Amino acid sequence: MTDLAILYEHPQWFAPLFAALDRRGVDYTAFGADGHWNPADSAIPAPVVLNRIAMSSFLRADEHPIFHTIALLDHWRRSGARVVNGPDVMAIDASKARQLALIASLGLAIPETRIVHRAADVEAAAATLAFPLVVKANIGGSGAGIMRFDNMAELRWAVNEGELPKSVDGVLLVQDYVPARGGEITRIETLDRQYLYAIDIAGGGAFDLCPADACVADSNISMRAAEPSSDLVDAAERIAAAMNLDVGGVEVMIDDRDGLPRFYDINALSNFVAQPLNVLGWDPHERLIDWLDTLIAETR
């Protein structure tokens, strides 16, 4: 048995992580969630399991592994594995509605939002908000499943024609469109519930802001290292602690209308920023591996 098992789905995002693990001589194995497993078999693939299944996996395969992985990680955890970003974390990662409810419960501002599970309820939900607004899929990823509407006529047409976004769990968010100050959002990355680094990202219209290499190769997204205020860092750490997030990013934008920071997304898949040495001046994979080494040592 190896010391570390990595469950992943995207074919390119984790090449930098695997390369860093190889340089450090970590004993690991990496594999996808396809195939089958036996719920009566208590064998685990490694004492420490790192979950790297992306919510955007449904964009790459109709038979996506999201819900399958939540059950599998829960099984491995019950069998004794230390699962990094385990099933409880993944269940919140797989629900923007749950993310927003968690954030709001901490007294932090979010975009004004209504949650529905029927297209027939979208118009009534929108009537409680102002235009422009957006309709989002509850399970998204890389900006998937987001549409902006500038008036009720546009929205009503989309409802009647079946043109609303589709979420693989059937849940939709009807949400105030927040004009992000400077067209930027800030992604605050955390490790073991503590601040790791932050980047400002622009060019995605707050719809498609994935910082991984594979996402930005053919896009107009730009990013730079950021130094968020202590209040924003504290808020991100509180969110990570409340979610029990081992490693992941919290996204916030400054509402240009009133200057209020509005937290709107938690991403448990930290594939880290593209070209970290150029953007940050250091490689966060090294810090992640340091922490994984600590977890591995604790299991021995």
Rank of each mutant, 00 (worst) to 15 (best):
residue 12 Q to Y: 13
residue 13 W to H: 09
residue 15 A to I: 08
residue 23 R to N: 11
residue 28 Y to F: 15
residue 29 T to L: 10
residue 40 A to N: 00
residue 44 I to N: 06
residue 44 I to S: 09
residue 45 P to H: 10
residue 49 V to K: 08
residue 50 L to M: 14
residue 51 N to E: 01
residue 53 I to C: 06
residue 54 A to W: 15
residue 54 A to Q: 08
residue 57 S to R: 13
residue 58 F to W: 01
residue 67 F to N: 10
residue 68 H to F: 14
residue 69 T to N: 08
residue 70 I to C: 05
residue 71 A to W: 11
residue 71 A to V: 08
residue 79 S to R: 02
residue 79 S to G: 02
residue 79 S to N: 07
residue 82 R to V: 13
residue 83 V to S: 04
residue 92 I to G: 01
residue 93 D to V: 01
residue 96 K to Y: 13
residue 100 L to M: 09
residue 102 L to D: 01
residue 104 A to G: 04
residue 104 A to D: 12
residue 105 S to M: 01
residue 106 L to S: 12
residue 111 P to F: 13
residue 122 V to C: 10
residue 129 L to F: 12
residue 130 A to H: 15
residue 131 F to A: 03
residue 136 K to M: 08
residue 138 N to R: 12
residue 139 I to R: 09
residue 141 G to A: 03
residue 144 A to E: 06
residue 152 M to Y: 06
residue 158 A to L: 11
residue 161 E to I: 02
residue 161 E to N: 02
residue 169 D to G: 04
residue 171 V to S: 02
residue 171 V to F: 06
residue 174 V to K: 07
residue 176 D to P: 00
residue 178 V to I: 15
residue 179 P to S: 00
residue 182 G to M: 06
residue 184 E to F: 07
residue 186 T to G: 05
residue 191 L to Q: 03
residue 193 R to D: 00
residue 194 Q to A: 09
residue 202 A to H: 03
residue 205 G to V: 03
residue 209 L to S: 13
residue 210 C to H: 12
residue 211 P to K: 02
residue 212 A to G: 07
residue 214 A to N: 10
residue 224 R to K: 09
residue 226 A to D: 12
residue 226 A to T: 08
residue 230 S to P: 10
residue 235 A to H: 10
residue 241 A to F: 03
residue 243 M to K: 00
residue 246 D to R: 04
residue 254 I to Q: 01
residue 258 D to H: 14
residue 258 D to N: 15
residue 260 L to S: 14
residue 274 A to V: 15
residue 282 W to R: 05
residue 283 D to R: 08
residue 283 D to T: 11
residue 283 D to M: 07
